[in-house]
């Protein structure tokens, strides 16, 4: 029983953490799409005609995925969506490190204290990916406890 509660706590905690991170990342981008479009441009990885579309679309994907994960409505798909986004971010960060470009990540909007793209950011995103995997789990043992 204790382990079931612990597992449920870990899973719920992971969902709250992941959803909070993605909503916190999306809101500044939604409020300042121009800043996020400039951040996308700085990555030098996308054709110029896609910058504005990505600047509007990516934050919405983050919000919708986070709400799905948190609410339980299409939770698995929400986790898959957020996992896919995070994998894409990891690939982008890796390419920036390999190309040796010094840019701000734009992950939480274009603030003055924007984090640079580098190894710490890559490690953080890999940690986020692990949290998404945990958050996608259904805590089965809890259902067994209810039945009993």
């Amino acid at each position: 029983m204790a382990s079931a509660r612990l597992e449920r706590g870990v899973v719920v905690g992971a969902r709250l953490l992941v959803a909070a991170v993605f909503v916190a990342a999306a809101v500044p981008k939604i409020l300042d799409p121009a800043g996020f479009a400039a951040a996308i441009r700085n990555y030098q990885a996308f054709p110029y005609w896609s910058w504005n579309g990505l600047a509007v679309g990516v934050p919405m994907l983050e919000v919708v995925g986070a709400l799905a994960l948190l609410s339980g409505w299409k939770r698995q798909a929400g986790a898959l969506l957020l996992g896919g986004l995070t994998l894409a971010f990891v690939a982008l960060i890796t390419s920036v490190i390999v190309r040796g470009i010094d840019i701000g990540c734009g992950c939480f909007g274009q603030s003055e204290a924007a984090e640079s793209v580098g190894w710490p950011l890559l490690v953080r995103d890999l940690g986020l990916l692990a949290a998404i995997v945990v958050a996608a789990r259904e805590p089965g043992p809890l259902r067994a406890a209810r039945v009993r």
């Binding site: 400039a38 110029y48 910058w51 504005n52 679309g57 994907l61 919708v64 299409k74 969506l81």
Partner: peptide, 27 residues
Amino acid sequence: LAALVGISGLLAGAHLGLRDELPWVAV
């Protein structure tokens, strides 16, 4: 997943419709 992406697209379209200063970055 397609449903979530579709909802995101609709929201993004609505967001675009609410703004009129495009392009944000010169293209």
